[in-house]
Simulated assay, not measured.
Amino acid sequence: MTTPLLSLDGVHTHIGHYHILQGVDLTLPRGELTVLLGRNGAGKTTTLRTIINLWQASKGRIVFDGEDITHWRTPRIVSRLGVGYVPENMGIFSLLTVQENMRLAAATRHIDTSRLEWIFGFFPALKKFWKTPAGLLSGGQKQMLAIARAIIEPRALLIIDEPSKGLAPAIVKDLSQAILELKQTDTTILLVEQNFGLAQAVGDQVAVMDDGRVVHASSMAELTADTPLQNRLLGLSLEAHA
């Protein structure tokens, strides 16, 4: 079995008076893509934000490559460990150009030319609109920019929250291909995704959340092959929503 890059052990998170995560156990195998599934409100986004300490875990441990990072501050997690995060709202600067958005995401504000060309191979539209304000991009192009910003530096772990939300099927297909190509690098990926066709196409492992806990973890192939299990865990089948 692949050595885990990241593990959550009994993680709880409170937001105000609300007890959102109620003992999350999650393991990310190194070099693989794990999809986090679950109904709305199950705790998926809270799990992502807790991993990078945007929201502080109130109990439990988060271990990255053998080191307890539960109480590390977010900038230290991002810079020291090489973690990229693409939030559901994309987090781009609408008034800045694509180039300026990318430059801000680079650690030294200097973009490595060869890495940029590698990114353009995934997202050629970004090269076309390099000098265009990001706010003028289409929804799919903004999502491409959000992911490109997260990988402008080499990442050990890339966390992506619902990248296909609101995108046309053709753009989702391009996004799927880009993620598949990213999997060929050394980057471990944690993906929250409601598009089950995309999840099935790119996922190696899957964890299903409900009521603030992980209630199922397996290979994606195992879940894909078991329609009754899909219905029991998610109230639907992957095939019906592909």
Results as ranks from 00 to 15, higher is better:
174 D>Y: 08
210 D>T: 09
127 K>L: 13
23 G>A: 03
88 E>Y: 11
13 T>G: 07
155 R>H: 06
212 G>W: 03
142 K>M: 03
145 L>V: 06
224 T>D: 14
126 L>V: 15
156 A>S: 12
103 R>K: 15
85 Y>S: 14
125 A>P: 11
62 I>L: 02
188 T>D: 05
208 V>H: 04
59 K>F: 07
44 K>H: 01
195 N>G: 06
168 A>G: 12
182 L>I: 05
146 A>I: 07
195 N>I: 04
128 K>V: 14
76 R>K: 12
85 Y>M: 14
58 S>A: 12
200 Q>F: 09
49 R>E: 07
27 T>V: 14
215 V>W: 10
79 S>C: 11
174 D>C: 10
173 K>G: 12
139 G>V: 02
129 F>D: 15
217 A>R: 13
23 G>M: 03
165 K>L: 15
117 E>W: 13
154 P>M: 10
85 Y>F: 15
202 V>D: 08
64 F>R: 00
1 M>G: 11
176 S>H: 02
16 G>W: 05
40 N>W: 01
71 H>C: 02
183 K>I: 04
201 A>M: 13
6 L>R: 00
170 A>E: 15
157 L>S: 00
109 R>C: 07
222 E>I: 04
11 V>G: 03
118 W>F: 14
206 V>H: 06
105 A>C: 06
97 T>L: 11
133 P>L: 05
214 V>Q: 01
17 H>R: 15
95 L>T: 15
100 E>G: 10
63 V>W: 01
20 I>G: 07
228 P>M: 07
46 T>M: 03
159 I>D: 04
213 R>T: 08
171 I>G: 10
186 D>L: 07
1 M>E: 08
109 R>E: 14
204 D>Q: 04
120 F>A: 13
78 V>T: 06
60 G>T: 01
6 L>S: 00
84 G>K: 14
179 I>H: 02
73 R>A: 08
220 M>I: 04
20 I>Q: 05
72 W>A: 00
242 A>E: 12
30 R>Y: 10
171 I>Y: 08
137 L>D: 11
46 T>Q: 03
119 I>R: 07
21 L>S: 05
125 A>F: 09
196 F>P: 09
115 R>Y: 10
147 I>R: 10
107 A>P: 07
151 I>Q: 14
11 V>E: 01
209 M>K: 07
163 P>H: 10
52 I>G: 02
131 K>Q: 15
97 T>P: 07
181 E>V: 06
159 I>S: 05
203 G>K: 11
177 Q>W: 13
23 G>E: 01
132 T>W: 03
26 L>T: 01
114 S>N: 15
6 L>W: 02
51 I>S: 00
103 R>Q: 15
1 M>K: 09
22 Q>P: 08
239 E>R: 14
